[in-house]
Every structure is written in C-alpha cells, then in structure tokens.
Nucleic acid binder design. Structure first.
Lengths: 156, 156
DNA sequence: GCTGGATATTTCATGGTGTCAAATAAATGG
DNA sequence: CCATTTATTTGACACCATGAAATATCCAGC
C-alpha cells in the first residue's frame, strides 16, 4: 500500500537516516504544493480547478471519473465544473452511450489555459537541473522503488 | 529560489527522464497529502488543525508566527485556534512582554493528541522500508541536492 | 508625556473546497 | 416490468482562506 499504510508503520525505532529522508520529502511536498497553487493563481485558477482542467485536457471525462482521480465525492466535482463552466473553460456534454453520465470537457479556451498552465508547471525541472543525467536516473529508480508498482496514475 | 522559480523554468525541451522524475514526485506528493489528511482525520482533526497542533506542541506561539509558518493570513489562524480551543486542545494566553500578542498553546489534551498524531505520522517510513541503507543514503543525498541549502524549515 | 505610525489580533463578508443525505434520472438484471 | 444499482445534482453544513476594517497596544521622536 501507500506511504501511510498502518500495517507497516511499525514501532521500530526510527533510524536517523530514514527520518532525514522523510523530512526532505516533507520539504519537497511543501514546496511542490505552494508553487502549484501559485502557478494556478497566475491563471486565476485555484489548485483544484487547475488539477481538473489538467485532467480534462486529456479528453472528455465523466464526472464520476474526475471524482475518483481527485479522491473526493462526486458532488464536489459538480461545483468545480460549474465554476470552470461559468468561466468558459469547460463544458458538459451528454454521453451518447449512457444518458446518465455527463462528460466534462475542456473548451478551446480551457485547453489553451491548460497548456499555458502546463508550461509554468515545468517547475520541478528547475531543481533537477542541478543533477546530472546519471544522478537523475538513480533518483528515478529509487523513487520508483518507493512508489511501488504503478497501478494508479497521479492526478497532479 | 524554489522549485517553481520562473527564471529557471526555461523553455528547453523537457527530456523524458526529467519528466518521469517529475511525475514520480507528483505521485509521492499526492500520497503524502492524502495520507496526512487521513491520519489527522483519525484524531478528528482537519489537516490544518493537525499542522497547527504540531506547531503548538513545540511551545506557545504567537498567532502571527503561526500564520507565517502556515503561509496564510493571520485572520485565518484566528478561526483555526478558535476551533482547537472549543475542543479543549489549545488555549490562548497573554504575552506578558507584549500585550498586543496572544500566545496559542497546546493544552495537556492537545499535547497528547499531538503525540499520538506524531506516532501515526511515522508514515513516510513505510515506503522506505523497501530500500536498503545504502539506497536510502543515496536517495537522501540526491534529495538534498534537489532541495538545495536548507534556509527554511518545513511546517509539515 | 504625547502623538503618529507601525504591529497584533479579531471581526465580518465572501468564495472555494469538501462532506453527507436526499432527489432525480437512467441503466440493468431478474 | 420491477427492483436495484449507478450517475449526477441539490441543499445544508463545516472548514480554509482572503481582504478590509476595527481595536488595542507598542514605540519613536518631539
């Protein structure tokens, strides 16, 4: 399971090395979020709106699926899409295959915004610039080990 | 500067390796947050409340300082402390040195809660369990390179 | 000492995010 | 055809967050 899996958060004495890594990750997480919000704000979007718009830019998506990716209740997505819709960045379409579902889709303006957003989100590149290709390869492999088998794709 | 430093988020073609690392970090960030919220929820706290309680467990803290650590407006802290206070986890004290400031402090119950919280927050240990000591050392060094000089401490 | 400007906190209005429960509509399987 | 399940929305509520304005206090300079 994940980082917080209760079954594995044992009572072993936390060794200093592990604690150091944990703290480093905490720092990275804090920066990542802070800067993600800032990037979104530059386009007058909240973090949630930016995330959803990013999802939509991959193609029309059922409301339910968005909720799953965001790990929140479907009723919450309604509001987020509402706000994107009133700003002309997204629209609702009917799914011809199943009349219960509504597909949220990015409008052209929405796609543009998502593109510009992705541009300013090249961010995590910056700190990696200080690493050689060899170092980045090692880092990737270690992170992969940490993350485990990729059965779910990130919504960020 | 930080991860999102606009001066360095250049227009170079993003190489696939870097993108992969970025995505992995995104995954870790998402998990970290999700599981932090869950851990807080187990103690009937929101993420923000858990963070503040963690801060308070280090000692009485002026409202202003809390806002700085959370990187939010002071007026926001008022509400968070209010809610912790009505639940008997925190209290406001007057600063004898400066009668303008109020010190938020964890009550005994608040300290207990913070301790239990810290316990369930050993989480990031779990995914590191799969790494050997040697691997963790390499990971630490690479992350250190990424994070850069530690001039600010994380509030998470 | 007094006064003017800075500082710390709170209050109020407002908006976004999130949950839960209930309503509606449509699919699906007996 | 009917009961059940599934997808979405609505409404009520709590929390987080901001910004502007009010209050109280400090502090510097006169």
């Amino acid at each position: 399971m994940g980082i917080l899996d209760p079954m594995t958060s044992s009572n072993e004495p936390p060794d200093p090395l592990t604690l150091e890594v944990v703290e480093l990750i905490g720092t990275i997480v804090a920066r990542y979020h802070e800067e993600y919000e800032q990037a979104a704000a530059k386009h007058s979007l909240t973090g949630a709106q930016a995330r959803v718009l990013g999802l939509l830019s991959r193609g029309p998506t059922p409301m339910r699926r968005i909720a799953q990716q965001l790990k929140c209740e479907p009723s919450n997505v309604t509001g987020i899409i509402d706000r994107l819709e009133t700003r002309g960045l997204a629209e609702r379409r009917l799914d011809p295959a199943d009349r219960r579902v509504k597909l949220a889709a990015a409008t052209d303006r929405g796609k543009e915004t998502a593109d510009r957003l992705r541009g300013s989100l090249g961010f995590a590149r910056a700190p990696l610039a200080g690493l050689s290709e060899r170092e980045r390869t090692v880092l990737r492999d270690l992170l992969k080990l940490m993350v485990g088998p990729d059965d779910e794709l990130p919504a960020v």
